[in-house]
Write a protein that binds this DNA or RNA. Structure first.
Lengths: 208, 208
DNA sequence: CCGTTTGTACAGTAAATTCTGTACGAAGTT
DNA sequence: AACTTCGTACAGAATTTACTGTACAAACGG
């Protein structure tokens, strides 16, 4: 089967890039151009702000492309749409899957892997920051606790050395405050993971 | 005045790097090595996890260095401690100041700029994510709202074209859901900025 | 008002990251 | 079993980002 494509130009922070969108069946060119214009604005905005999630600009655009694709895509389709190699699509889509921003889906009859965006952005947001924060929190808390106990041992060992004790005290205060902070962060992560955050800050405002 | 230094080796994800810590006055070498060991562990952990904040590893280490420095530092001191050029220190410290992780402080008698870490990590955290999220939220909401109204106009214009309307509907649903998400995100940001987040998730657990 | 000192802009270099093409193992088809 | 097709590992090329040294404007001191 032969597919026709419509080229839309996405403006990025440095220059611009083309995306090939598959033609919508049964629509006139006029209709399609109007629709693509509306889509393009959103794809650009999303793609350009994805650095927040620490992903490449091209990965961000892949995400934008997938967002408006109303069906799952294969790696080859992505490669053609983005005018990039299949290898790049493979790595890009994997980072998106790792971040749970994109899901791999199964479709009977197809040997190819299919991908579509996770449309629940609340979930995407919560998953992403849980993941990132938890990693930092675990490592840092571990280091802080170990150093805290070392500092305590030193305080005991050099209990008569006034000047050194004072120095130790300053460090201990900092470490304790950092531990306090990470304990709080852990509770915040907990609220994200348990979805309790949506009780605290509701998804929708109560309609009056 | 002449200052002596103690070299500590920081392990980073790729290789390692030296940091020159100023000698603590009146402490024995034994004491100091023990203290630096405890500090080093925390500096390493912090520095290696700062990619979360989208900053360079070296900027992360500068932050770690400043964290345990119990007095403000000048650019020259940082340059010496990090074994890097003053230019690099200037740019690194500026990104930290922009992120409100480090404050510029004044000291009478000194012509040099002095910097110290913001020790209130709750504030640092809230400021950082407010800043980042707000930027993305504003731009994306603007794009989404504009595209939403365009889609509505198209729906009116092509009210008889069943197939195209269906396509529009799919896009509108996505845009609406995205707007719903960003409205929620704005309220979350609000909670961070107003410090209401600390009512919802308290800094300290009530002691029983 | 001239000589210092300080911080940063800028251009060039060094280093790291992203992207591509080839190659190959895994899985499906004939 | 031989033949396709698919996804990704890997190495090298292309691009981007980080770092350095020089130069200079701003602020201060004599």
């Amino acid at each position: 089967m032969q597919a026709l494509f419509l080229t839309i130009t996405i403006n990025i922070t440095k220059g611009q890039v083309n995306i090939q969108m598959e033609r919508i069946e049964g629509a006139t060119l006029e209709q399609e151009l109007a629709l693509q214009k509306a889509r393009k604005r959103v794809i650009e905005a999303i793609g350009n702000n994805m650095d927040l999630y620490g992903i490449t600009q091209s990965t961000g655009h892949l995400y934008g492309l997938l967002f408006f694709q109303n069906k799952p895509m294969t790696l080859d389709e992505m490669g053609h749409a983005m005018e990039m190699s299949k290898t790049s699509m493979s790595t890009a889509v994997r980072t998106l899957v790792d971040l749970k921003m994109v899901n791999k889906v199964w479709e009977k009859g197809s040997r190819k892997d299919l991908y579509e965006v996770e449309l629940d952005w609340f979930q995407t947001f919560a998953d992403f920051f849980s993941l990132k924060w938890r990693k930092a929190s675990e490592i840092n808390l571990h280091a802080l606790r170990k150093s805290k106990s070392e500092l305590q041992e030193l305080s005991a060992k050099y209990a008569e050395d006034e000047a050194f004790l004072q120095q130790l005290q300053a460090d201990q205060a900092k470490v304790d405050e950092a531990i306090r902070y990470y304990s709080w962060l852990n509770r915040l992560i907990e609220a994200f993971e348990s979805e309790e955050i949506f009780k605290l800050v509701p998804k929708d405002l109560p309609s009056r």
